[in-house]
Design a protein around this nucleic acid. Structure first.
Lengths: 189, 189
DNA sequence: GTAATTGCCTAATCCTTTTAGGCAAATCGT
DNA sequence: ACGATTTGCCTAAAAGGATTAGGCAATTAC
Protein backbone atom coordinates (compact mmCIF):
# COMPACT_ATOMS: atom_id res chain seq x y z
CA UNK A 1 0.00 0.00 0.00
CA UNK A 2 1.51 3.30 -1.09
CA UNK A 3 1.89 5.91 1.59
CA UNK A 4 0.40 9.34 1.35
CA UNK A 5 3.37 11.12 2.87
CA UNK A 6 1.49 13.03 5.52
CA UNK A 7 3.25 15.21 8.02
CA UNK A 8 1.95 17.54 10.67
CA UNK A 9 3.33 20.36 8.60
CA UNK A 10 1.46 19.40 5.45
CA UNK A 11 -1.74 18.71 7.32
CA UNK A 12 -1.75 22.09 8.96
CA UNK A 13 -0.94 23.81 5.71
CA UNK A 14 -3.77 21.98 3.98
CA UNK A 15 -6.01 22.79 6.90
CA UNK A 16 -5.27 26.46 6.38
CA UNK A 17 -6.21 26.20 2.72
CA UNK A 18 -9.35 24.36 3.65
CA UNK A 19 -10.18 27.11 6.12
CA UNK A 20 -9.91 29.73 3.40
CA UNK A 21 -12.20 27.68 1.19
CA UNK A 22 -14.93 26.61 3.56
CA UNK A 23 -14.42 28.75 6.64
CA UNK A 24 -12.37 28.01 9.71
CA UNK A 25 -15.36 26.69 11.64
CA UNK A 26 -15.86 24.00 9.03
CA UNK A 27 -12.32 22.71 9.16
CA UNK A 28 -12.57 19.16 10.31
CA UNK A 29 -10.29 16.19 10.62
CA UNK A 30 -12.66 14.25 8.38
CA UNK A 31 -12.62 16.83 5.64
CA UNK A 32 -8.85 16.94 5.79
CA UNK A 33 -8.58 13.17 5.55
CA UNK A 34 -10.92 13.22 2.58
CA UNK A 35 -8.76 15.83 0.92
CA UNK A 36 -5.73 13.59 1.24
CA UNK A 37 -7.59 10.46 0.26
CA UNK A 38 -6.74 8.68 3.47
CA UNK A 39 -8.78 7.34 6.36
CA UNK A 40 -9.63 9.61 9.22
CA UNK A 41 -7.75 7.65 11.83
CA UNK A 42 -4.53 8.07 9.89
CA UNK A 43 -4.36 11.72 10.77
CA UNK A 44 -4.07 10.89 14.43
CA UNK A 45 -0.48 9.84 13.89
CA UNK A 46 0.28 13.47 13.11
CA UNK A 47 -2.31 15.41 15.06
CA UNK A 48 -3.28 14.90 18.65
CA UNK A 49 -6.83 16.09 18.15
CA UNK A 50 -9.12 18.41 16.30
CA UNK A 51 -8.17 21.12 18.75
CA UNK A 52 -4.55 20.48 17.92
CA UNK A 53 -5.24 20.99 14.23
CA UNK A 54 -7.03 24.26 14.85
CA UNK A 55 -4.27 25.46 17.09
CA UNK A 56 -1.75 24.63 14.40
CA UNK A 57 -3.65 26.61 11.80
CA UNK A 58 -3.98 29.50 14.21
CA UNK A 59 -0.24 29.57 14.85
CA UNK A 60 0.48 29.41 11.14
CA UNK A 61 -1.85 32.30 10.46
CA UNK A 62 -0.41 34.42 13.24
CA UNK A 63 3.05 33.73 11.87
CA UNK A 64 2.13 34.65 8.31
CA UNK A 65 0.29 37.75 9.36
CA UNK A 66 3.16 38.89 11.55
CA UNK A 67 5.56 38.38 8.67
CA UNK A 68 3.44 40.47 6.39
CA UNK A 69 3.08 43.22 8.91
CA UNK A 70 6.81 43.20 9.57
CA UNK A 71 7.46 43.57 5.85
CA UNK A 72 4.94 46.34 5.57
CA UNK A 73 6.43 48.20 8.47
CA UNK A 74 10.04 47.96 7.36
CA UNK A 75 11.49 51.38 6.76
CA UNK A 76 8.30 53.25 7.52
CA UNK A 77 7.25 55.50 10.35
CA UNK A 78 4.40 57.72 11.40
CA UNK A 79 1.31 57.77 9.28
CA UNK A 80 3.08 55.82 6.61
CA UNK A 81 3.65 52.98 9.02
CA UNK A 82 0.12 53.19 10.33
CA UNK A 83 -1.34 52.91 6.86
CA UNK A 84 0.95 50.06 5.92
CA UNK A 85 0.11 48.19 9.08
CA UNK A 86 -3.58 48.64 8.47
CA UNK A 87 -3.32 47.55 4.86
CA UNK A 88 -1.31 44.46 5.70
CA UNK A 89 -3.88 43.45 8.23
CA UNK A 90 -6.90 44.01 6.03
CA UNK A 91 -5.39 42.52 2.91
CA UNK A 92 -4.44 39.36 4.70
CA UNK A 93 -7.95 38.99 6.05
CA UNK A 94 -9.47 39.43 2.62
CA UNK A 95 -7.06 37.11 0.89
CA UNK A 96 -7.26 34.49 3.62
CA UNK A 97 -10.53 34.79 5.50
CA UNK A 98 -10.24 31.32 6.96
CA UNK A 99 -6.72 31.85 8.20
CA UNK A 100 -7.70 35.24 9.54
CA UNK A 101 -10.49 33.65 11.54
CA UNK A 102 -7.99 31.07 12.71
CA UNK A 103 -5.68 33.78 13.94
CA UNK A 104 -8.48 34.79 16.28
CA UNK A 105 -8.83 31.27 17.66
CA UNK A 106 -8.46 31.30 21.39
CA UNK A 107 -5.17 29.73 22.41
CA UNK A 108 -4.29 28.63 25.88
CA UNK A 109 -1.97 31.09 27.60
CA UNK A 110 1.28 29.16 27.22
CA UNK A 111 0.71 28.54 23.53
CA UNK A 112 -0.25 32.16 23.02
CA UNK A 113 2.86 33.35 24.80
CA UNK A 114 5.03 31.29 22.46
CA UNK A 115 3.16 32.39 19.36
CA UNK A 116 3.67 35.17 16.87
CA UNK A 117 0.96 37.02 18.75
CA UNK A 118 3.78 38.48 20.77
CA UNK A 119 5.31 39.98 17.66
CA UNK A 120 1.97 41.51 16.78
CA UNK A 121 1.86 43.30 20.07
CA UNK A 122 5.40 44.55 19.65
CA UNK A 123 4.78 45.81 16.16
CA UNK A 124 1.65 47.64 17.14
CA UNK A 125 3.64 49.38 19.82
CA UNK A 126 6.37 50.12 17.32
CA UNK A 127 3.96 52.14 15.25
CA UNK A 128 3.26 54.37 18.18
CA UNK A 129 6.90 55.27 18.49
CA UNK A 130 6.25 57.68 15.67
CA UNK A 131 3.68 59.47 17.77
CA UNK A 132 5.36 60.16 21.08
CA UNK A 133 2.73 58.64 23.27
CA UNK A 134 3.77 57.63 26.76
CA UNK A 135 2.27 55.03 29.04
CA UNK A 136 -0.47 54.40 29.95
CA UNK A 137 -1.83 56.19 26.89
CA UNK A 138 0.29 54.00 24.72
CA UNK A 139 -1.50 50.91 25.93
CA UNK A 140 -4.84 52.60 25.40
CA UNK A 141 -3.79 53.43 21.87
CA UNK A 142 -2.56 49.91 21.20
CA UNK A 143 -5.91 48.57 22.28
CA UNK A 144 -7.78 51.08 20.20
CA UNK A 145 -5.81 50.29 17.09
CA UNK A 146 -6.18 46.57 17.65
CA UNK A 147 -9.87 47.10 18.17
CA UNK A 148 -10.57 49.24 15.12
CA UNK A 149 -8.57 47.19 12.71
CA UNK A 150 -9.83 43.87 13.89
CA UNK A 151 -13.37 45.11 14.29
CA UNK A 152 -13.53 46.76 10.91
CA UNK A 153 -12.13 43.76 9.12
CA UNK A 154 -14.43 41.43 10.99
CA UNK A 155 -17.50 43.47 10.13
CA UNK A 156 -16.44 43.85 6.53
CA UNK A 157 -15.78 40.14 6.17
CA UNK A 158 -19.08 39.18 7.68
CA UNK A 159 -20.85 41.30 5.13
CA UNK A 160 -21.86 44.03 7.53
CA UNK A 161 -21.08 46.78 5.05
CA UNK A 162 -22.88 45.44 2.05
CA UNK A 163 -26.06 47.39 2.68
CA UNK A 164 -24.57 50.82 2.20
CA UNK A 165 -23.29 51.92 -1.18
CA UNK A 166 -20.09 53.46 0.10
CA UNK A 167 -16.78 51.96 -0.95
CA UNK A 168 -15.22 50.17 2.02
CA UNK A 169 -11.80 51.19 0.73
CA UNK A 170 -12.71 54.82 1.17
CA UNK A 171 -14.02 54.23 4.65
CA UNK A 172 -10.77 52.48 5.44
CA UNK A 173 -8.64 55.42 4.25
CA UNK A 174 -10.84 57.83 6.11
CA UNK A 175 -10.41 55.81 9.27
CA UNK A 176 -6.64 55.51 8.92
CA UNK A 177 -6.52 59.23 8.32
CA UNK A 178 -8.63 59.92 11.35
CA UNK A 179 -6.57 57.69 13.56
CA UNK A 180 -3.40 59.38 12.43
CA UNK A 181 -4.78 62.78 13.31
CA UNK A 182 -6.03 61.48 16.59
CA UNK A 183 -2.70 59.99 17.56
CA UNK A 184 -0.82 63.08 16.57
CA UNK A 185 -3.00 65.15 18.85
CA UNK A 186 -2.72 62.71 21.69
CA UNK A 187 1.03 63.22 21.88
CA UNK A 188 2.29 63.33 25.46
CA UNK A 189 5.03 65.94 25.46
CA UNK B 1 -46.48 10.65 30.02
CA UNK B 2 -46.27 14.23 31.27
CA UNK B 3 -45.31 16.83 28.70
CA UNK B 4 -42.41 19.15 29.14
CA UNK B 5 -44.16 22.19 27.72
CA UNK B 6 -41.54 23.12 25.17
CA UNK B 7 -42.01 25.99 22.81
CA UNK B 8 -39.70 27.55 20.28
CA UNK B 9 -39.63 30.61 22.49
CA UNK B 10 -38.53 28.76 25.59
CA UNK B 11 -35.96 26.74 23.70
CA UNK B 12 -34.34 29.79 22.24
CA UNK B 13 -34.34 31.54 25.56
CA UNK B 14 -32.74 28.52 27.21
CA UNK B 15 -30.32 28.32 24.33
CA UNK B 16 -29.26 31.88 25.04
CA UNK B 17 -28.64 31.05 28.68
CA UNK B 18 -26.70 28.00 27.67
CA UNK B 19 -24.62 30.15 25.34
CA UNK B 20 -23.68 32.45 28.18
CA UNK B 21 -22.68 29.49 30.29
CA UNK B 22 -20.71 27.37 27.87
CA UNK B 23 -20.08 29.62 24.90
CA UNK B 24 -22.16 30.07 21.79
CA UNK B 25 -20.09 27.59 19.81
CA UNK B 26 -20.97 24.85 22.28
CA UNK B 27 -24.69 25.37 22.08
CA UNK B 28 -26.10 22.17 20.77
CA UNK B 29 -29.50 20.63 20.29
CA UNK B 30 -28.41 17.72 22.44
CA UNK B 31 -27.30 19.91 25.31
CA UNK B 32 -30.56 21.77 25.14
CA UNK B 33 -32.59 18.57 25.19
CA UNK B 34 -30.58 17.39 28.17
CA UNK B 35 -31.33 20.63 29.96
CA UNK B 36 -35.04 20.09 29.51
CA UNK B 37 -34.88 16.41 30.34
CA UNK B 38 -36.35 15.36 27.02
CA UNK B 39 -35.09 13.35 24.08
CA UNK B 40 -33.21 15.09 21.33
CA UNK B 41 -35.73 14.34 18.63
CA UNK B 42 -38.41 16.15 20.59
CA UNK B 43 -36.84 19.48 19.89
CA UNK B 44 -37.39 19.05 16.19
CA UNK B 45 -41.07 19.78 16.67
CA UNK B 46 -40.06 23.29 17.62
CA UNK B 47 -36.81 23.89 15.78
CA UNK B 48 -36.09 23.14 12.18
CA UNK B 49 -32.42 22.53 12.75
CA UNK B 50 -29.36 23.41 14.73
CA UNK B 51 -28.87 26.35 12.41
CA UNK B 52 -32.39 27.45 13.22
CA UNK B 53 -31.63 27.42 16.92
CA UNK B 54 -28.50 29.48 16.47
CA UNK B 55 -30.33 31.94 14.29
CA UNK B 56 -33.02 32.27 16.93
CA UNK B 57 -30.47 33.01 19.63
CA UNK B 58 -28.77 35.52 17.37
CA UNK B 59 -32.04 37.35 16.75
CA UNK B 60 -32.83 37.38 20.44
CA UNK B 61 -29.43 38.81 21.27
CA UNK B 62 -29.67 41.50 18.58
CA UNK B 63 -33.07 42.43 19.93
CA UNK B 64 -31.90 42.65 23.54
CA UNK B 65 -28.82 44.58 22.65
CA UNK B 66 -30.78 47.03 20.52
CA UNK B 67 -33.21 47.56 23.39
CA UNK B 68 -30.40 48.30 25.77
CA UNK B 69 -28.75 50.69 23.38
CA UNK B 70 -32.06 52.43 22.74
CA UNK B 71 -32.53 52.88 26.48
CA UNK B 72 -29.01 54.16 26.88
CA UNK B 73 -29.42 56.63 24.08
CA UNK B 74 -32.75 58.05 25.21
CA UNK B 75 -32.44 61.72 25.99
CA UNK B 76 -28.75 61.94 25.31
CA UNK B 77 -26.73 63.56 22.60
CA UNK B 78 -23.14 64.25 21.63
CA UNK B 79 -20.44 62.74 23.74
CA UNK B 80 -22.94 61.72 26.33
CA UNK B 81 -24.74 59.59 23.76
CA UNK B 82 -21.48 58.21 22.45
CA UNK B 83 -20.37 57.11 25.89
CA UNK B 84 -23.74 55.60 26.71
CA UNK B 85 -23.82 53.71 23.45
CA UNK B 86 -20.35 52.37 24.05
CA UNK B 87 -21.14 51.35 27.60
CA UNK B 88 -24.36 49.58 26.63
CA UNK B 89 -22.50 47.62 24.04
CA UNK B 90 -19.61 46.61 26.22
CA UNK B 91 -21.68 45.85 29.28
CA UNK B 92 -23.97 43.59 27.34
CA UNK B 93 -21.01 41.69 25.97
CA UNK B 94 -19.54 41.21 29.40
CA UNK B 95 -22.78 40.21 31.05
CA UNK B 96 -23.77 37.93 28.19
CA UNK B 97 -20.71 36.75 26.31
CA UNK B 98 -22.56 33.88 24.69
CA UNK B 99 -25.39 36.04 23.49
CA UNK B 100 -22.92 38.64 22.31
CA UNK B 101 -21.15 36.03 20.22
CA UNK B 102 -24.54 34.95 18.93
CA UNK B 103 -25.30 38.49 17.84
CA UNK B 104 -22.30 38.22 15.56
CA UNK B 105 -23.57 34.99 14.03
CA UNK B 106 -23.82 35.38 10.30
CA UNK B 107 -27.44 35.55 9.21
CA UNK B 108 -28.63 35.14 5.68
CA UNK B 109 -29.48 38.50 4.10
CA UNK B 110 -33.28 38.28 4.38
CA UNK B 111 -33.15 37.30 8.03
CA UNK B 112 -30.64 40.03 8.73
CA UNK B 113 -32.80 42.61 7.00
CA UNK B 114 -35.73 41.67 9.23
CA UNK B 115 -33.64 41.65 12.39
CA UNK B 116 -32.85 44.22 15.02
CA UNK B 117 -29.58 44.69 13.21
CA UNK B 118 -31.36 47.40 11.29
CA UNK B 119 -32.09 49.30 14.50
CA UNK B 120 -28.43 49.05 15.43
CA UNK B 121 -27.45 50.75 12.23
CA UNK B 122 -30.02 53.47 12.75
CA UNK B 123 -28.95 54.12 16.30
CA UNK B 124 -25.31 54.34 15.39
CA UNK B 125 -26.23 56.93 12.80
CA UNK B 126 -28.35 58.72 15.38
CA UNK B 127 -25.30 59.30 17.52
CA UNK B 128 -23.61 61.09 14.71
CA UNK B 129 -26.42 63.59 14.49
CA UNK B 130 -24.76 65.28 17.41
CA UNK B 131 -21.63 65.78 15.37
CA UNK B 132 -22.74 67.33 12.10
CA UNK B 133 -21.09 64.87 9.83
CA UNK B 134 -22.44 64.65 6.31
CA UNK B 135 -22.28 61.74 3.89
CA UNK B 136 -20.15 59.97 2.93
CA UNK B 137 -18.15 60.77 6.04
CA UNK B 138 -21.09 59.72 8.12
CA UNK B 139 -20.91 56.21 6.75
CA UNK B 140 -17.18 56.13 7.32
CA UNK B 141 -17.75 57.17 10.90
CA UNK B 142 -20.50 54.59 11.40
CA UNK B 143 -18.14 51.92 10.22
CA UNK B 144 -15.35 53.14 12.40
CA UNK B 145 -17.51 53.21 15.50
CA UNK B 146 -18.91 49.78 14.75
CA UNK B 147 -15.39 48.54 14.22
CA UNK B 148 -13.81 49.95 17.37
CA UNK B 149 -16.57 48.97 19.71
CA UNK B 150 -16.98 45.50 18.35
CA UNK B 151 -13.26 44.98 17.95
CA UNK B 152 -12.39 46.19 21.40
CA UNK B 153 -15.05 44.11 23.06
CA UNK B 154 -14.07 41.08 21.06
CA UNK B 155 -10.41 41.41 21.98
CA UNK B 156 -11.23 42.06 25.62
CA UNK B 157 -13.55 39.07 25.79
CA UNK B 158 -11.04 36.76 24.20
CA UNK B 159 -8.52 37.71 26.82
CA UNK B 160 -6.34 39.75 24.54
CA UNK B 161 -5.77 42.43 27.17
CA UNK B 162 -4.81 40.26 30.06
CA UNK B 163 -1.09 40.53 29.47
CA UNK B 164 -0.82 44.23 30.15
CA UNK B 165 -1.48 45.63 33.59
CA UNK B 166 -3.60 48.54 32.43
CA UNK B 167 -7.23 48.72 33.46
CA UNK B 168 -9.42 47.99 30.43
CA UNK B 169 -11.98 50.42 31.81
CA UNK B 170 -9.49 53.22 31.53
CA UNK B 171 -8.56 52.27 28.02
CA UNK B 172 -12.23 52.26 27.19
CA UNK B 173 -12.76 55.79 28.53
CA UNK B 174 -9.66 57.00 26.76
CA UNK B 175 -10.95 55.57 23.52
CA UNK B 176 -14.43 57.04 23.89
CA UNK B 177 -12.82 60.35 24.67
CA UNK B 178 -10.59 60.14 21.67
CA UNK B 179 -13.43 59.22 19.37
CA UNK B 180 -15.46 62.13 20.62
CA UNK B 181 -12.64 64.56 19.90
CA UNK B 182 -12.10 62.98 16.54
CA UNK B 183 -15.73 63.25 15.54
CA UNK B 184 -15.97 66.83 16.70
CA UNK B 185 -13.06 67.75 14.51
CA UNK B 186 -14.41 65.86 11.54
CA UNK B 187 -17.49 68.06 11.42
CA UNK B 188 -18.51 68.93 7.88
CA UNK B 189 -19.73 72.51 8.03
C1' DG C 1 -67.33 12.19 24.18
C1' DT C 2 -65.44 11.51 19.98
C1' DA C 3 -62.23 13.39 16.54
C1' DA C 4 -58.41 15.96 15.20
C1' DT C 5 -54.19 17.80 16.50
C1' DT C 6 -50.02 18.13 18.77
C1' DG C 7 -45.99 16.82 21.71
C1' DC C 8 -42.79 13.80 22.97
C1' DC C 9 -41.07 9.15 22.21
C1' DT C 10 -38.46 5.09 19.90
C1' DA C 11 -35.80 3.71 16.16
C1' DA C 12 -32.68 4.32 12.61
C1' DT C 13 -29.18 6.67 9.67
C1' DC C 14 -25.33 9.54 8.97
C1' DC C 15 -21.33 12.27 10.25
C1' DT C 16 -17.38 13.53 13.22
C1' DT C 17 -14.05 12.40 16.91
C1' DT C 18 -11.11 9.48 19.15
C1' DT C 19 -8.76 5.06 20.74
C1' DA C 20 -6.83 0.35 20.00
C1' DG C 21 -4.53 -2.84 17.52
C1' DG C 22 -2.56 -4.70 12.95
C1' DC C 23 0.25 -5.07 8.81
C1' DA C 24 3.24 -3.27 5.35
C1' DA C 25 6.68 0.12 4.03
C1' DA C 26 10.57 2.78 5.09
C1' DT C 27 14.75 3.11 7.64
C1' DC C 28 18.72 1.59 10.25
C1' DG C 29 22.58 -1.30 11.85
C1' DT C 30 25.66 -4.41 10.48
C1' DA D 1 22.07 -6.67 1.15
C1' DC D 2 19.20 -8.19 4.99
C1' DG D 3 17.05 -8.56 9.27
C1' DA D 4 15.15 -5.65 12.85
C1' DT D 5 12.93 -1.69 14.23
C1' DT D 6 10.30 2.10 13.61
C1' DT D 7 6.69 4.41 11.44
C1' DG D 8 2.52 5.27 8.52
C1' DC D 9 -1.76 4.14 7.18
C1' DC D 10 -5.34 0.77 7.80
C1' DT D 11 -9.60 -1.71 9.96
C1' DA D 12 -12.64 -1.86 13.83
C1' DA D 13 -15.25 0.09 17.21
C1' DA D 14 -17.32 3.24 20.55
C1' DA D 15 -19.34 7.60 21.63
C1' DG D 16 -21.73 11.95 20.68
C1' DG D 17 -24.34 15.12 17.74
C1' DA D 18 -27.92 16.04 13.74
C1' DT D 19 -31.76 14.70 11.45
C1' DT D 20 -35.84 12.00 9.68
C1' DA D 21 -39.78 8.66 10.01
C1' DG D 22 -43.34 6.84 12.29
C1' DG D 23 -46.06 5.89 16.74
C1' DC D 24 -48.87 6.70 20.75
C1' DA D 25 -50.62 9.47 24.40
C1' DA D 26 -52.13 13.93 25.89
C1' DT D 27 -54.46 17.95 24.65
C1' DT D 28 -57.81 20.67 22.15
C1' DA D 29 -61.84 21.38 19.36
C1' DC D 30 -66.44 20.27 18.20
Amino acid sequence: MARAGLTTERLIRAGAELADEVGFEHVTISALARRFGVKVASLYSHLKSSQDLKTGIALLALEELADRVADALAGRAGKDALAAFAAAYRDYAREHPGRYAAARFRLDPETAAASAGVRHAQMTRAILRGYDIAEPDQTHAVRMLGGVFHGYVDLELSGGFSHTPVDPDESWSWIVDSLDTLLRNRTTP
